[in-house]
Amino acid sequence: MKKILFALIFLALATAPLSAGKTVEEILAEFDKTISVPSLQGTFTVKLISKNGDTREIKARAYQKLVDNKQNNRLFIFDFPPRVRGTGLLVHSFLDGRDNNMWIYLPTVKRVKRIALESSGGGYFMGSDFTYRDLIANDLNNMKFELLDEKTMNGIESYVIKCWGKNQTVIKDLGYSYMISYYKKENSVMYRREFFDSDSKLLKVYQVDNFHVSGRYHYPTKITMTNVQTEHKSIIEVTEISTKDIPERYFTTRYLTDK
């Protein structure tokens, strides 16, 4: 149980804005505003569905708070499957270049352990279609963007933007040769992303099927990630969403062990 247990939900919370727009920069900035909810909590259910229909499930509670324009705190408490029940992950993310701080609480050993996500074991997170690397926000300074097209997709007028790593090191680190993202023209909300493998073949599709809308904020509440090569699928559903302010003490090791 040394491997970092991380929520798929993290992707929904942490996916870096990768688009451009009216100009690329404008789309990215607008998308960032739609997803930067000051306080957010919810219950996440992740269904992992294999090609033969075998289904597994992960359940977690998640809390997020933007402390200021330089810090974002997140807390995840896992409730299912039973072997990870009570496991907690606390993340203090810094948006000014400092390393993230992460602590994991493992109830079987009753210990809070400082970890680095990069030392999480890599690979697919808890058997899902998200890699551990997918869960880390991309540094936009390391990425290149290009507006490919403006088209209507499933009745939605969209900007289509390609992004890729600035150099081979970043590309290798990402695990994808490039990604193509779809942003709604009306509000710059990203609702689809396609991931291409090192041979530039389509590998995975990230699709948002539902949003929770509160004022200017659009938060994804149903996400499907499909690996088109293996036909494995992960479906995230978020319920009991609240945007009420969350006390600072939630994002401490005390709360990590208490909940």
């Binding site: 040394k2 491997k3 970890i115 680095a116 990069e118 030392s119 999480s120 074991g121 890599g122 690979g123």
Partner: peptide, 12 residues
């Protein structure tokens, strides 16, 4: 020391 090795091997 906790570190990640190539081929996604977690090591301590």
């Amino acid at each position: 020391i906790l570190a990640n090795l190539p081929w996604d091997i977690l090591s301590q």
